[in-house]
C-alpha cells in the first residue's frame, strides 16, 4: 500500500479557552474519498481548518505528501495544491461567478477544457457566469464553492458539508461531481452529515467524537453494519435512505 497523502498524528487544537481536537490520528489515502463523520461539535470542521492552518496546531504533526505542514501559514499550505471548501462556502458575493473562479485559478488563466467539464457538472455556473455571486441561490453558491476548488487540478480537496441544506437535485449534482473527481484519482477529505451521500462517494471513513477519531475503516463495511452506525453515530443508513 502506498503512503497516505495526508497524515495527522496526535493533533491537538485549541480555540480560545476550548480544547477542541484532543489527539486526532488520521490517514487519508491517495486517490480516493475519505469521509469524516461524527455528531455536531465532534471536531470535524476544526480538523479541516487545522489542516488548512486556519487554526494553529498546539501539539502533534500534520504531514502532507511527505512534508510537514503544521507550522506553515494558510497560503503556503494552499499553494501545496490543497483546495478548501469551507462550511459557509466562502463565496465572494460582490464578485461575479467568473471573478470567483478566476481568483481560484492561481495560474491566473481559466483552462477552457476544464471549464467545459465544470459547466457540464454545474450548468447554472455557465448561465450566471457574469452575475454577482451574491444573487445565486444557496445550491448554486455551493456549486460555485466546489467549482472553485476544482478549477485547477489539486492534490487534495477538503470539503466541509457540501450538501448542508441543499435540495435533492443539487445533492445529486454534488455526488456526480465527487464521483467524477474520484475517477480522476483526486484525493478528497469530505466532512458530511448526510450518510446517504457519504456512503455513495466514500471509500474510507473515519468517525470523530469529542475531538478524537473513534473509528477508522472502509466505508462499505460501515454502510453494511447498521449496529455499528448506531453505536458510533446514533444513526443508521436505513434511516437516511
Amino acid at each position: 500500500m502506498s503512503d497516505p497523502l495526508l497524515t495527522l498524528r496526535g493533533v491537538h487544537t485549541h480555540i480560545g479557552p476550548y480544547h477542541i481536537l484532543q489527539g486526532v490520528d488520521l490517514e487519508v489515502p491517495r486517490g480516493g474519498v475519505t469521509v469524516l463523520l461524527g455528531r455536531n461539535g465532534a471536531g470535524k470542521t476544526t480538523t479541516l481548518r487545522t489542516i488548512m492552518g486556519l487554526w494553529q496546531v498546539r501539539e502533534g504533526l500534520i504531514q502532507f505528501d511527505g512534508a510537514q505542514i503544521h507550522q506553515e501559514t494558510t497560503p503556503v499550505i494552499a499553494q501545496r495544491e490543497i483546495a478548501f471548501v469551507p462550511e459557509d462556502m466562502g463565496i465572494f458575493t460582490d464578485l461575479t461567478v467568473h471573478e470567483n473562479m478566476l481568483l481560484a485559478a492561481r495560474s491566473g488563466v481559466l483552462e477552457e477544457e476544464r471549464l467545459s467539464w465544470i459547466f457540464g457538472l454545474f450548468p447554472p455556473l455557465k448561465t450566471f457566469w457574469h452575475s454577482a455571486a451574491g444573487v445565486l441561490s444557496g445550491g448554486q453558491k455551493q456549486m460555485l464553492a466546489v467549482a472553485r476548488a476544482i478549477v485547477e487540478p489539486r492534490k487534495l480537496i477538503l470539503i466541509d458539508e457540501p450538501t448542508k441544506g441543499l435540495a435533492p437535485a443539487i445533492i445529486n449534482a454534488m455526488v456526480v461531481a465527487l464521483k467524477e473527481l474520484k475517477e480522476m484519482q483526486t484525493t478528497i477529505l469530505l466532512v458530511e452529515q448526510n450518510f446517504s451521500m457519504a456512503s455513495a462517494v466514500g471509500d474510507t471513513v473515519a468517525v470523530m467524537d469529542d475531538g478524537r477519531i473513534v473509528y477508522k475503516g472502509d466505508m462499505c463495511e460501515l454502510a453494511a453494519d447498521a449496529a455499528l452506525q448506531e453505536r458510533l453515530m446514533g444513526l443508521s443508513l436505513e434511516a437516511h435512505q
Binding site: 457538472l121 450548468p123 447554472p124 448561465t127 437535485a169
Partner: peptide, 9 residues
C-alpha cells in the same frame, strides 16, 4: 443527473 438542475436565480 444534470438535467435535474434547473438554473434558478
Amino acid at each position: 443527473s444534470n438535467s435535474l438542475i434547473k438554473p434558478r436565480i
